[in-house]
Design a protein around this nucleic acid. Structure first.
Lengths: 268, 268
DNA sequence: TGGAATTACCGTATGGCATACGGGAATGTA
DNA sequence: TACATTCCCGTATGCCATACGGTAATTCCA
């Protein structure tokens, strides 16, 4: 799969679009000129709808325009191009998690807060399985992403980690949660887009075990297989790996934070 | 970015291509007919070269054929389609890590073995920065992927984890290492493909901090920023998060394995 | 030696895509 | 009513994957 490029185009224009609902009270219509029939918000909603239903690969400018009953080129009046539209889609859905911000009610304990984050992110990927296909290097610096960063950094600051480790920990937690959520979602997406269940995908490859796999070349896999330690259903495998991985990562962070607390607060 | 679909097409045909160099002593030319000018291997090498240089987005059948001095449609004699070619590319580069298999010399200790895996995977993504853009749900079941699974499962089996946890742990470690390696590589790729350094990307967005960012809405980010805990260079941030995350994950696994060992081996 | 069979190469055509360009329509103000 | 402003969108360009079918090279066999 070729990935979408994110964070391209004129930066200021994109930032204005990302924060359009923010400071200033929304986009106000100019005093003169023809009345717009479509808007950035409607375009983003339509694009997300198309991507949810048919995958990000089917989200073409033509399809989005069609969904809005507009001409393809009309979109370009409101949005610089497809790359920027994807940035807007990503930030919009990230914001859907509605993570409690500063001053709002949050779960007690930093670990519970991270687990809320993981649960919301899992739901998010279930609703928008195309999300993991968009690369987030140079991410859209919009409210959705910032809410995520604020939430994670706040929780991990409270964990007692030394400040130098907080950013790295936030990155690691975000990566772990994302990997878990998106691989589970990807299993669903693969079933939905190809119309082939995971079981039948494996069944079509049963010859692999007979003809290509070699017990002597891969003894550890073979042993685990015989011990029944290898799952079959892709979603379940992904979910188990994600849950296990996040739990162990948080264990490790907790141990580190405890050690830092004991060593850092002298005579504590 | 729209992602490539992997694992599509006729399964048996794809498996045969993936294992072409394996049992049977390579693809033998049929007794009759015109002599082939290109081969699957040459196509895969050319495709990887193109993707390495110009990104997976530039890897079109036309470009690959051109690199081989052949007509575009000639590729389809050897490869069913682009999706399958990408599977072959992925498995080929995964195999480049040349992880020591059963019977070969390996580092002492399961943790050192995982760290070798992480290092090799980091190099791999540095050489082939397009790799993280290919989704690996329903992955190509070729020698490259199997070598990875064998290596991880063997190492984690030796860690002392209960068998039920080994597969999940292998998945979690693979995900963590992949996330670390690919986000670091993606930072490079972004610089290379857009011709814009990370510093200048941020500089172009300096207005973000002045106009869009709000200290009161994001107090934890602001505090960490003032404490100097937020890095600037994308590659360094990604590397730190990856290193930290993997270390903590392995800490957590180790603790779990120790506990299981103590509890599991009665009267040990 | 000359088909016939087999295999590989590839030109052309189709339909989809993003998007540059520029004309035309609708709306406001003077 | 004239004009500026803003928006809508048809057309054209160039890239893409790939289906189809013709053609070239090679070997086998009569």
């Amino acid at each position: 799969m070729a990935a979408e490029r994110s964070g391209a185009g004129d930066p200021r224009r994109t930032l204005d679009l990302l924060w359009r609902a923010g400071s200033g009270g929304g986009p106000r219509r100019p005093a003169r000129g023809r009345r717009p029939r479509i808007s950035v918000d409607r375009i983003v909603v339509a694009a997300v709808t198309v991507a949810d239903r048919d995958g990000i690969g089917a989200m073409s400018m033509e399809r989005v325009a069609e969904a809005l009953g507009a001409g393809t080129m009309s979109l370009y009046t409101h949005v610089p191009g497809k790359a920027e539209l994807i940035d807007l889609m990503v930030d919009a859905v990230l914001a859907e998690r509605d993570l409690p911000g500063a001053g709002q009610a949050r779960p007690d304990g930093w670990r519970a807060r991270i687990e809320l984050y993981a649960a919301r992110t899992g739901d998010l990927h279930r609703r928008h399985p195309w999300l993991h296909q968009v690369s987030l290097v140079r991410p859209p610096l919009g409210p959705g992403l910032l809410a995520q960063e604020e939430y994670l950094i706040a929780a991990l600051t409270d964990s007692g980690l030394p400040p130098d480790d907080v950013a790295a920990a936030a990155g690691a937690v975000a990566a772990a949660v994302d990997a878990a959520a998106s691989s589970a979602a990807a299993a669903d997406r693969a079933e939905h887009e190809t119309g082939q269940s995971d079981a039948s995908w494996w069944a079509a490859r049963s010859s692999f075990w007979e003809r290509d796999f070699d017990d002597e070349r891969y003894p550890a896999i073979a042993a685990l297989w015989r011990a029944g330690g290898l799952g079959r259903d892709a979603r379940e495998v992904a979910t188990r790996a994600g849950t296990f991985g996040l739990a162990r990562l948080l264990d490790g962070i907790e141990a580190r934070a405890t050690a830092a607390g004991a060593g850092g607060v002298r005579g504590g």
